[in-house]
C-alpha cells in the first residue's frame, strides 16, 4: 500500500507511485547546485561583532 496519501480511511483505490526516472548525475548536480545559488543568507559572524558599543543607546522609535 502506497503511503503517498494519508488519511483517516482507506480510499477505494491505491495511489500508484509514478515510476521515477532516476536523476542522471548531471540532473542531480544541477539541482544541488541550484539550491546553493538561491535563497537568502543572513547570519551574524560572532567573531566580528564589536560588543556593546551601541547597547546603551536608549533612542526610541518614531
Amino acid at each position: 500500500m502506497s503511503t503517498l496519501m494519508k488519511g483517516n480511511f482507506t480510499p477505494a483505490h491505491n495511489v500508484e507511485d509514478a515510476p521515477q526516472q532516476a536523476d542522471t548525475l548531471e540532473q542531480r548536480f544541477e539541482k544541488e547546485a541550484l539550491k546553493k545559488l538561491g535563497g537568502s543568507i543572513a547570519f551574524v559572524s560572532k567573531k566580528k561583532v564589536l560588543w556593546g558599543d551601541e547597547a546603551d543607546n536608549k533612542d526610541e522609535p518614531e
Binding site: L4, M5, P11, A12, H13, N14, V15, E16, D17, A18, Q20
Partner: peptide, 14 residues
Amino acid sequence: KGAQVLHSVFNADR
C-alpha cells in the same frame, strides 16, 4: 511527483 501521481490521487476515490 507531478501530474501522473496526481492522476492516481484524483482517481483514488469519489
